[in-house]
């Protein structure tokens, strides 16, 4: 964390309302936080707290009604090559008519990388995401976990400075979810990635994050920010049984109520 340099990503008083004043509905209310370089920040909140909407504002897909999203000190008004977003619904975010390799190559095409280099560049990504032997398969032939890995590989192929993740493991079964959590956490550790990770799962947020930002709903607002002091690499059993883990869980649980 370098003092002085602007944070990779920042929300500066971001508010968002839909509709016109008398009937307007406030989704996000004056959100302010920063995502420093190399940090894994999780946003946790109940459904309806606007966390997906917030991510879309930060990605440049949706303009804020007030306040600004900043990337490296500059306002985000539109999608940027340095910001990648991983959607929860991997089944809808992949091009079904392209193979695994073809989907990853989409990011290369977007960057104007010549076709002759695609195979060489995608090979290490596919290996990293354990997709090497599935390179020629179509998404419909893959399991949900594998499809999500393809989407992650595609976002990595974009070579972004920051990864935005919208409940990426929420639709997966428990075992696959834990596997992907661990794989992804290791990857971010070893590559020092900057991540903003949205989830409604408290434990997932604490387990993965260096910092957890808790949102409350109606309107979406920050109620607590916790710095997670747990050793890395995290482990599914030990980490979740650590007294600090339980303490964080307890604190966050009070804000978020029961789901």
């Amino acid at each position: 964390m370098s003092a002085g340099a602007p944070p990779v990503l920042a929300a500066r008083g971001v508010s968002l309302a839909f509709g016109t004043p008398p009937a307007a509905r406030t989704i996000l209310s004056d959100l302010a936080f920063e995502v420093p370089e190399r940090e894994f920040v999780c946003i946790v909140g109940p459904s309806g707290c606007g966390k997906t909407t917030l991510l879309r504002v930060l990605a440049g897909l949706l303009p804020a009604s007030a306040g600004e999203a900043h990337f490296q000190g500059r306002r985000v008004a539109a999608p940027q090559p340095d910001i990648a977003i991983i959607f929860q619904d991997y089944g809808r975010a992949l091009l079904p008519w392209r193979t695994v390799a073809g989907n990853v190559a989409l990011a290369f095409e977007a960057r104007g990388i010549p076709k002759s280099e695609h195979a060489v560049r995608s090979a290490p990504l596919l290996a990293k995401m354990r997709l090497a032997e599935h390179a020629d398969k179509f998404p419909a032939e893959l399991s949900g976990g594998m499809q999500q890995r393809v989407q992650i590989a595609r976002c990595l192929a974009q070579e972004p400075r920051v990864l935005l993740m919208d409940e990426p493991f929420g639709a997966l079964d428990a075992i696959t979810r834990q596997t992907l959590q661990d794989e992804f956490a290791r990857l971010c550790e070893s590559e020092h990635r900057t991540v903003l990770f949205v989830t409604h799962d408290l434990e997932e947020a604490i387990y993965l994050g260096d910092r957890v930002i808790a949102l409350a709903a109606n309107p979406g607002r920050i109620v607590e920010i916790i710095d997670v002091d747990l050793p890395r690499p995290r482990r599914q059993l030990e980490t979740r049984e650590d007294y600090r883990f339980l303490e964080y869980r307890h604190r966050l649980f009070q804000h978020l109520g029961h789901e």
């Binding site: 990605a59 897909l61 999608p79 940027q80 090559p81 910001i83 990648a84 977003i85 959607f87 619904d89 809808r92 975010a93 091009l95 989409l106 990011a107 095409e109 977007a110 974009q158």
Partner: peptide, 12 residues
């Protein structure tokens, strides 16, 4: 619409 968002994110 999700695919359109993917296209927008990749700025095609």
């Amino acid at each position: 619409p999700r695919l359109i968002e993917v296209a927008r994110m990749l700025r095609f």
